[in-house]
Amino acid sequence: MRKSAGFTLIELVIVIVILGILGAVAAPKLFNLQGDAYGANLNAMKSSISTSMTMANAKAQIQGKFGDLKGTTGDDVVTGYENIEFIGGYPKAINPKGILDTLDGFEVARYKVTLDKTITSAEAAKYEITAGRTALRISPATIVKDDCEVTYVQARAQKDGTGVDNTGAETYAPALVFADTVGC
């Protein structure tokens, strides 16, 4: 009777093939951690911008400042947001003097910031908003895809007949923030 002291060549080949298949399937999942980190970073940035936007808007409402404010002197300034330009009670989608300046510790050099880009019809349908609105887009400096970004859509005066309230004052569509992390 022959004693078996190890594995046969066929058993070793089968194990190597199985490990190869597992490696081919699992490795891309494990090594896409950088994309996940970018996505998490952008979601955190979206939350920070949204919180900052809401706080700035609350201060503007308390102070009764809703128009197009340059943030330089007297009635043109929302207290606590000096040198920040506002429209409709929200920080503008500009840089500098806009929404990014309301964020503490935001390092512009780490990001690609695209200013005054207009919302397209496709984006308007995706986000269920009006096309043509001014937007500020922020994406990681090392990513070149369009679907890995935070978009801050600036408030704007209503132009559809609903733009005046019962006192005759102009009303505004609110500012909005979206995060698209599909391509990260």
Score class of each variant (00 low, 15 high):
Q61M: 14
V177W: 03
R137T: 11
K65R: 10
N32Y: 02
L22M: 15
T167H: 07
V182A: 10
G98C: 08
A157Y: 01
I87F: 03
Y81L: 04
K117R: 14
Q158A: 10
T118Q: 15
K3T: 06
A124T: 08
T151W: 01
D165F: 01
A26E: 12
D160Y: 02
Q158G: 04
S52I: 00
S48Y: 01
T134H: 06
G71N: 05
I18S: 09
T171S: 07
T151L: 07
G6R: 06
V144Q: 09
R156C: 08
G6L: 04
E82S: 10
G64K: 05
R133E: 13
D146F: 00
V17D: 06
T54N: 12
A26V: 12
I87H: 00
Y38V: 00
I49M: 14
V13S: 10
G88C: 06
N83A: 06
I87N: 03
V25H: 08
A175H: 02
K126F: 07
K159W: 00
K70R: 05
V17W: 03
E107L: 05
V77C: 11
T51A: 15
L19Y: 02
P140M: 07
A5G: 14
V78P: 15
A26C: 12
G88Y: 00
G132S: 08
I62Y: 15
A37P: 08
P91F: 00
A131P: 14
T118F: 04
A135Q: 11
A141M: 05
L12Q: 09
D68Y: 06
S47C: 01
K92W: 04
K126W: 05
K59T: 10
A155W: 01
T162G: 13
I119S: 11
A26M: 14
L103V: 07
K92Y: 07
A131R: 06
V153I: 15
I138H: 02
K92R: 13
V25R: 11
N41Q: 14
N166A: 10
A141I: 13
D76H: 03
S139Q: 13
V15I: 12
T162E: 13
D146T: 05
E149A: 09
T79H: 08
P28S: 07
N166W: 00
Q154K: 03
K159D: 14
M55I: 09
G74V: 01
I62S: 14
S48W: 00
T54R: 12
R2Q: 11
G67H: 02
G132F: 04
M45W: 01
T54Y: 06
A26G: 11
A58D: 14
F178Y: 09
G89W: 02
K65H: 09
L115M: 12
S50D: 15
G67M: 03
Q34V: 00
T171K: 06
T102V: 10
A60V: 04
C148L: 08
T151M: 12
A125S: 13
L136A: 10
A27S: 14
L9K: 07
Q34K: 08
F86T: 03
P28C: 06
G23D: 11
G6Q: 06
G74E: 04
L42P: 07
G132L: 07
A40N: 09
G67Y: 02
K59R: 11
L12D: 09
T171C: 05
T171M: 05
S139A: 14
L100Y: 04
D147T: 07
V17F: 09
I87C: 03
A131N: 09
Y127N: 12
A27G: 11
K97R: 12
I10S: 09
A60N: 06
